[in-house]
């Protein structure tokens, strides 16, 4: 497919037009931290930084209503109550703008979870209405390791449209029909001879990431180390059990379900959950199969690098985006854990 050019100064106009037809999720930088959000009118995203959060909330919101329930008491017999249940699926089309290739891959990792044997209608309704416009990573940083998970800074997988950075804008490459459609605008001009410039940035980015450790093929090592409590204790020593790693992860999908009510009305909500929390597996009886944080970390690593790959043809549930590494308050680096696991458990 041919490339077209979008000048940096035309980005706001393009977003303005997209905004007419769909919700736009894009990174906004505040206080030095870029995070995805649904843009308001005339808000201009910052595509220059690697966003601290992933855009997964666009398809899997941190909180969503599964259904509402309303109790109706019978006027003639107040002990008789009818309960009405109703639910609503997303209808508004949306575009994720400024996703990174690792983010697009993250959605691809979530798809088989929510669209497998059991179909999750809430996720699928959003997913079907979502267009992904990714920006290739010309400037990966030291926390990035996408090639080690099967991706790459210019990996087109999962994107509808890929923006390749050049000095004064982007070369846009349509990858799907939906992506191509977004290009049918006078704001885009022929790419001319800009392709070598984009190519050279790509080469540099890939060279920068050449040392990324391979996170794949650790299934056996994990199983071998499963009972090595000292290993997991050490890997988890600094963990303060916050939820950063799971909440910023483009591939984490675990969730909680709770009820909230007020008077005769209420709703059942689904919220992101986190496996490093003691409460995650705490049973009402008092029994907890993952009492210690080391066991919870073991499950976290196992899920991403053993159980998920065993179910999905060796693909790890990690895109190498590096967000957990960048933001961990204790500097825990998932690369180091998997590397030493592969070494010790070989």
């Amino acid at each position: 497919m041919s490339l077209v050019f979008l000048a940096r100064e035309n980005l706001p106009a393009w977003i303005g037009r997209l905004y007419q037809d769909m919700a736009v999720f894009a990174p906004m930088t505040i206080n030095g931290v870029a995070a995805f959000r649904a843009l308001g009118q005339d808000e201009i995203p910052d595509l220059s930084r690697i966003p601290a959060s992933s855009p997964k909330a666009a398809v899997f919101p941190q909180t969503e209503t599964l259904f509402t329930f309303t109790s109706r008491k019978h006027a003639d017999d107040l002990s008789q109550v009818d309960i009405d249940l109703s639910y609503h699926l997303a209808e508004v089309p949306r575009v994720i703008l400024g996703a990174r290739p690792c983010d697009a891959r993250g959605l691809k990792l979530m798809d088989p979870v929510f669209g497998g044997k059991v179909k999750d209608p809430y996720y699928l309704a959003r997913r079907e209405r979502t267009i992904i416009v990714s920006q290739a990573c010309a400037m990966p940083d030291r926390a990035c390791f996408c090639p080690g998970t099967g991706g790459g800074p210019y990996d087109p997988a999962g994107s509808d449209l890929l923006l390749l950075p050049v000095a004064d804008g982007w070369l846009a490459q349509g990858l799907t029909e939906a992506g191509e459609k977004l290009l049918a605008q006078d704001l885009f001009t022929p790419a001319g001879d800009r392709e070598p410039e984009a190519q050279s940035l790509k080469d540099k980015a890939e060279a920068y990431l050449a040392q990324a450790p391979d996170m794949r093929g650790a299934e056996q090592a994990f199983e071998n180390l499963f009972k090595d409590e000292a290993f997991w204790d050490q890997a988890t020593a600094g963990c303060v059990r916050c939820r950063i790693c799971a909440y910023l992860c483009p591939a984490c999908t675990c969730f909680n379900i709770t009820d909230e009510e007020s008077g005769l009305k209420g709703e059942r909500i689904r919220t992101w959950d986190h496996c490093m929390s003691y409460m995650f597996t705490q049973e009402a009886s008092g029994h907890n199969p993952r009492m210690q944080k080391a066991f919870r970390m073991r499950n976290r690593i196992g899920h991403k690098f053993c159980y998920y790959p065993q179910l999905h043809g060796g693909t790890v549930s990690c895109t190498g985006c590096g967000r957990c590494v960048r933001a961990c308050p204790s500097g825990i680096d998932i690369r180091r854990i998997v590397e030493s696991m592969k070494r010790k458990g070989a």
């Binding site: 505040i30 995070a35 941190q62 910023l248």
Partner: peptide, 27 residues
């Protein structure tokens, strides 16, 4: 609005010692 409710503020606090018994996690 920007808070992701990750509780890193609470868990990184040396004086927050309630851990799994924090009222924020209680129903």
């Amino acid at each position: 609005r920007r808070c992701v409710r990750c509780y890193a503020c609470r868990n990184a606090c040396p004086l927050c010692v309630c851990k799994a018994h924090c009222v924020a996690d209680s129903r």
